[in-house]
């Protein structure tokens, strides 16, 4: 069973690293993406003021990458799960709120890779990741008696 949770942690970690990278770089051809593109995607949700959207566009991809790496290498593991769990809940809430208000949005979750993703598939993916994270939170973490992931 430990193997299953370990693999799931690796998979979810890889998804977050990928999600973060696609917001920062375009792979074909390779170039750094203008953070204004992501800021506009965030702004399209019409929840945050523009300045905060820019701040998030600069910050969020790196947080996703760091949390993804933490899940892959099992360093700062519990903190990373808590953060990405929070992020997923916010993503899902924001997407549902936008849909309810009739706003047609590009989620920007995986940069340009997800441009063609329908809302339904976007939700399926989000809830699958959320489910995996809940599983990791309750079953995939080391018991308290074992040595901590990273001595701090």
């Amino acid at each position: 069973m430990k193997f299953v949770w370990r693999t799931l942690g690796l998979l979810v970690g890889a998804v977050f690293v990928f999600a973060g990278l696609t917001k920062i770089v375009d792979f074909q051809p390779f170039r750094f993406l203008d953070p204004m593109e992501l800021a506009r995607d965030i702004d399209n949700y019409k929840i945050l003021p523009w300045t905060l959207s820019v701040w998030l566009a600069l910050y969020l991809p790196w947080l996703e990458i760091l949390c993804g790496l933490a899940l892959i290498f099992r360093r700062l593991y519990s903190g990373a799960i808590a953060l990405v769990l929070g992020l997923m809940i916010v993503f899902i809430g924001a997407s549902l709120a936008a849909k309810a208000r009739g706003i047609d949005i590009t989620c920007g979750c995986f940069g340009h890779v997800s441009d063609q993703l329908s809302f339904a598939w976007h939700m399926v993916l989000d809830f699958a990741i959320l489910g995996a994270l809940v599983g990791l939170w309750f079953c995939g973490r080391r018991p308290q008696s074992e040595p901590a992931e990273t001595p701090l």
Partner: peptide, 13 residues
């Protein structure tokens, strides 16, 4: 420890 780890990740980003 959870809080410390979260804050460290938030700060590192």
């Amino acid at each position: 420890s959870l809080l410390r780890q979260s804050l460290l990740l938030l700060g590192l980003a």
